[in-house]
Design a protein around this nucleic acid. Structure first.
Lengths: 187, 187
DNA sequence: TAGGGTCTGGGACAAATGTCTTTTTAAATT
DNA sequence: AATTTAAAAAGACATTTGTCCCAGACCCTA
């Protein structure tokens, strides 16, 4: 539920510490509630989260939101848009204070062109994410909400995260009203 | 809805025609209804579809199926399992007669290690698929079935595919009964 | 303290979906 | 053609979910 990628983080931290003065990679702090990437915008940089938790979500035309996943250490954002040269599919918002490495798109592109190890890491990351996204879609369609909610609550508990009810509902793809109903009866 | 990837197909066909006698890439025909990959199995080969249409679906423990996508020319299957070294997430089944290029896992791995162009194609493919999967998950959760059904019907119409009602329901993530209900009233 | 906001949770009803069963349709067999 | 069999569609009812609205809690300010 909370995605992380230690290998990727190590890779980036190596680059970060080895670089000289013309720093291509910088570290930036985002306050809780601030936004790293805006859905629909054209990002010129990518971010690799060092610590903290972000929410990755889609806002649909009908005003509803759907939370794709929660991203934490080692997860990369904006790379898909960079690869495909398209606007951001999701908004990435900091749920806690977040520190992230920032890389210019052009520089990341050049890295991709010459570094096989990075390519490998990227393939693994995308594959992992695809599996997660697909599994969850299947699970959500075919199981009851009760199942999904149970998982989500366990997740919050384990990480001591206090998700807002709105976020929970958006993750489950239901309304606040439905979530409240599911939350009440504990027989 | 029907995924294709012409660039990838070209790439593979080039390889196919350039190879000598110790053919690493072969062409295989699958009859309608036969299965390319079995969910849960450990595939030792990957397939790139040359023509025909396949259904990629997950069977959950509760006996229900969820159709992820329909794959056609240029789409690759088994690559995620190869990258992550995990069992198949989905079953890939031929809906029509299908011709596919077959590549041994070990050979594909070696190609990935030395060919930057292939890496690039793979990144694009995975990114594209991720966007599709994610968009659809969001759409399905946040819009009415009516919307989704309309899209699906238009898709069948455009491609002159006669999807079974079971397949349609599995794609929409609903029961046959619900699909029939949605299909009846046309005011 | 009274009044007015806003926010949260829940009630009531409508719409949708699932499950189970029956009916209808189509196909196959004799 | 008549009978049987299997497959598809629909009916009935329970459950779930969404929408709309209202009551109470909380926090301001006058």
């Amino acid at each position: 539920m909370l995605r992380t990628n230690p290998d990727f983080l190590s890779y980036i931290e190596n680059l970060y510490h080895q670089q000289g003065d013309g720093a291509e990679i910088t570290l930036k702090t985002f306050a809780r509630g601030s936004v790293l990437l805006h859905q629909g915008s054209r990002p010129s940089r990518i971010y690799i989260i060092r610590d903290g938790i972000t929410k990755c979500y889609c806002s649909e035309d009908n005003g509803k939101d759907y939370v794709m996943e929660f991203l934490s250490a080692g997860e990369i954002t904006g790379e898909i848009e960079l690869i495909r040269n398209t606007p951001c599919l999701c908004t990435i918002e900091a749920l806690t204070t977040v520190q992230a490495y920032v890389i210019r798109g052009a520089y990341f592109r050049s890295l991709l062109d010459k570094d096989a190890a990075l390519n490998r890491l990227m393939l693994e990351e995308l594959a992992e994410r695809l599996v997660n996204t697909a599994s969850r879609a299947s699970f959500q369609q075919l199981y009851t909400m009760e199942h999904g909610l149970k998982k989500l609550l366990a997740f919050c508990d384990k990480l001591q995260i206090e998700l807002s009810k709105e976020d929970m509902a958006a993750y489950l793809g239901i309304t606040l009203r439905s979530l409240n109903r599911l939350l009440k009866p504990r027989p």
